[in-house]
Amino acid sequence: MKRLIITLIILSAGFASSCAARGETNVIVSGSTSVLPYVEILVEEYRILYPEYGVGIQGGGSSAGILAAVSGFADIGMSSRALNEDERDLWSSEIALDGLAIIIHPDNPVDNLSMQQLRDIYTRRITNWSEVGGRDARIHIIAREAGSGTRSAFQDLVMEGEVIHQRAIVQNSNGAVRQLVSGNRDTIGFISLGLAEPQPGLRPVKALQLDGVAPTRENVLNGSYGLYRAFLFVMPEAPEGYVGHFIDYILSEEGQQLLIGEGLISVSGRIG
């Protein structure tokens, strides 16, 4: 019993100290849950390099993050969507680009789809692979869940106002979509470009060309492959002080290399 009490005291002391550490946070970053995991990785490194600067991260979604930055609850808002009309006056910086790959099973003979065909598949106007040059088999479409940033990017970039068909199988992560596609010849799905590349221990998937353009980082950077979105940092005014220091780190060679390692596309090649 005594031991239990002592353990509890130690545990609560631990909690108290971790709360105190959060209290010293200098920069608060808030917003898109698509950007969040990447920023978490950056922050881990940043804390090691610059222990004197603190950074706190919160989710909540792109719109909530931008709102938080405008209202001063956060220093930086993370957004995985383009700024809308009302937000044009804000200062923003692209921290990385995230491509979307359309993936199928490697044994599927189809290599290329037009944007129109892709849209027709996801609205189920095309339901058989033979209609797009494949074998005679039903197409099983796979999508992400409502609210996911990847789904909304696909919706905006591909669907042109139409809705993904309700018969679509829904999986709640990039990894689950990849897993399903790599194990079934008749499926089609969309995931982050970096995750479509071969990975040790995982069965491969084939990333389709769109209108004859291969989904590569180069083609995203030169603008020929259209399925990508920018991850933005948004704030009311240009950053300075410790906020600026954090953003400088992300845009530095080191920060960008970290993001490339996680499968994102560096913005340094495009903006220069």
Binding site: G61, E145, I169
Partner: peptide, 29 residues
């Protein structure tokens, strides 16, 4: 498989009430 469509056979994917919450709560606002 979590499709939100009426099933036509027992080989079709469906979504249950519990799944709907578990699947979408992460981003819902």
């Amino acid at each position: 498989g979590n499709s939100v469509a009426l099933p036509e056979s027992i080989l079709d994917s469906v979504r249950t009430l519990t799944t709907n919450i578990g699947l979408e709560m992460g981003y819902a606002a």
